[in-house]
Simulated scan of single mutants.
Amino acid sequence: MLGSLGFSYVGLIYLLMLFIPNIIWSKNQPIDYNNVQENKILLSFERVGEVCCTCSVLIFSDFNLASFSTWSLWLIVSFLLMLLYEICWIRYFINEHTEENFYRSFCGIPVPLASLPVTAFLLLGVYGKVIWLIASVIILGIGHIGIHIQHLKIKK
């Protein structure tokens, strides 16, 4: 449950799936982006969670592919959520770059650009049985999803 130290190529793939769209977004932010003063507590949770998740997902080899078992379903669902996350980014990039498009739900999933990767990383932690990632994702989720909800409420 503590994790086996070693490089995780699966973790690297997840981080690339996470960071590449965010880098592109930094150059394509919503035209009506409301750069509100974010809650400092939520922002602290988000930053700590980001650092801890990034480290955890890379330094534990437990996330790498193993022989298929029913436990592998955690990884499959996690990866499917990351694919949905990518679809949400594509949806944002091909449509008008507005906050409405950025925060709109996807198949009933609220704030999908925040909730999908957080859930995917949580399930990756369950798959790898690494408590450090699970704890890190909970911290990240409180901050990241909380900030997205804060922005969504201000938008309305």
Score class of each variant (00 low, 15 high):
114 A>L: 07
118 V>N: 03
83 L>C: 13
107 C>A: 14
115 S>M: 10
97 H>S: 09
106 F>I: 12
114 A>M: 05
111 V>S: 03
104 R>V: 13
100 E>W: 03
112 P>W: 00
113 L>I: 01
116 L>I: 08
107 C>I: 13
120 A>W: 01
93 F>L: 08
100 E>H: 06
87 I>E: 03
108 G>F: 12
87 I>T: 10
105 S>G: 14
102 F>G: 00
115 S>K: 06
103 Y>S: 08
89 W>Q: 09
90 I>N: 08
105 S>I: 07
86 E>T: 13
90 I>L: 13
83 L>T: 08
91 R>H: 11
91 R>C: 09
91 R>P: 05
110 P>G: 04
120 A>I: 10
109 I>S: 05
105 S>R: 13
90 I>E: 05
110 P>T: 04
90 I>V: 15
93 F>T: 12
115 S>P: 10
85 Y>W: 07
83 L>P: 09
97 H>V: 07
110 P>K: 04
88 C>Y: 01
117 P>E: 04
109 I>F: 11
100 E>M: 09
91 R>W: 04
99 E>N: 15
86 E>H: 09
99 E>K: 10
96 E>P: 07
110 P>H: 04
101 N>V: 04
93 F>N: 09
111 V>D: 01
104 R>I: 12
117 P>D: 05
92 Y>N: 00
107 C>T: 13
116 L>Y: 05
104 R>N: 13
105 S>Q: 14
111 V>M: 03
110 P>R: 03
120 A>V: 09
97 H>N: 10
92 Y>A: 00
103 Y>R: 07
113 L>E: 00
98 T>L: 02
120 A>Q: 02
102 F>R: 01
86 E>S: 14
95 N>V: 03
120 A>S: 15
107 C>Y: 15
106 F>R: 06
102 F>V: 00
99 E>Y: 02
93 F>Y: 07
84 L>A: 15
107 C>L: 15
88 C>S: 07
84 L>E: 06
116 L>C: 06
104 R>M: 12
116 L>M: 05
114 A>F: 01
83 L>H: 07
99 E>S: 15
119 T>V: 14
88 C>N: 09
90 I>K: 12
85 Y>T: 05
95 N>M: 09
117 P>M: 08
101 N>P: 03
105 S>P: 12
120 A>Y: 02
85 Y>D: 03
99 E>C: 14
102 F>P: 00
84 L>Y: 10
120 A>N: 03
118 V>C: 14
115 S>H: 06
108 G>L: 11
91 R>K: 14
92 Y>M: 01
108 G>T: 13
117 P>I: 08
85 Y>C: 10
113 L>K: 04
109 I>V: 15
89 W>Y: 14
93 F>E: 06
114 A>W: 00
107 C>M: 15
95 N>Y: 12
101 N>K: 01
120 A>F: 02
99 E>G: 12
98 T>E: 01
103 Y>K: 08
89 W>L: 12
104 R>C: 12
94 I>K: 10
119 T>M: 10
107 C>Q: 10
85 Y>V: 05
98 T>N: 02
89 W>N: 13
86 E>Y: 08
85 Y>N: 09
113 L>F: 00
106 F>M: 12
117 P>Q: 06
113 L>Q: 02
104 R>Q: 13
92 Y>R: 01
87 I>V: 15
85 Y>E: 05
83 L>V: 14
90 I>A: 10
98 T>H: 01
112 P>V: 03
108 G>A: 13
94 I>Q: 08
108 G>H: 13
